[in-house]
Amino acid sequence: MVREKQVTREQVRHLAWLSRIRISKAEERKYAEEMSEILRYFRKLDDIDTTGIPPTYHVVEVVNVMRDDEPQPNPPNQLLGIVPARKGRFVKAPRIV
């Protein structure tokens, strides 16, 4: 039996870009194979008819959980201390362009 590929290497490359995970050429192939096999299993769901069935996004049935508009003070330097690279009080990010 010829097993159809569910995911191509081009797709893998695109998914890796969307996920911002750098992968090598060799990994592209590996992911394409592994993912194809896993997705083949996921396609099991094709066998079940869900016409007219709404999705379950939340299992809890509560709605309108909200908080009052009250500002809470925050310790000023608590979070800067764990920033890996800073410039003064700014978080330093790599160049944009």
Partner: peptide, 8 residues
């Protein structure tokens, strides 16, 4: 710019 400075 060689960096971007982020203020959250």
């Amino acid at each position: 710019s060689r960096v971007a400075l982020v203020d959250y």
